[in-house]
């Protein structure tokens, strides 16, 4: 089998693992990890396809696309982590309020 085909199949498998993981996890950080894995799989397929001609330099267009893709995926990760952190903080505040006040309905309004 051609080396590019080996890596392309590997990328396909990574994408499937990531996609199924994305749907079967509830923890936000795990979901971020899963979407990153699925993304890496797609990028691996792209770069493998760029190497199809056995002689000479690989196709630079997919390479540029993948470079853009990696940087965009790190910014998506950063935004996802920030959102997850915000959710965790809101959850923690809600939990503290419901355990702190004896009657959760009476003590509303404090931020």
């Amino acid at each position: 089998m051609n080396p590019w085909a080996v890596y392309a199949l590997s990328g396909v498998a990574m994408f499937s693992v990531g996609l199924v993981g994305l749907f079967s996890h509830e923890h936000p950080v795990k979901r971020i990890l899963a979407s990153n894995i699925a993304g890496s799989g797609v990028l691996l397929v792209l770069v493998a396809l760029a190497r199809r001609e056995p002689t000479g330099a690989p196709d630079p267009v997919p390479h540029a696309l993948v470079l853009t893709g990696i940087v965009v995926s790190v910014s998506a990760t950063a935004l996802g982590v920030a959102l997850a952190r915000r959710i965790a903080r809101i959850d923690a505040t809600a939990k503290a309020e419901s355990t702190g006040a004896s009657d959760p309905e009476a003590g509303g309004g404090s931020a």
Binding site: A5, A8, V45, R52, A57, P58, D59
Partner: peptide, 13 residues
Amino acid sequence: AVLSLPSDDPGLT
């Protein structure tokens, strides 16, 4: 799907 692509396509090189 990936394996059925032509195996020696130079793309836009």
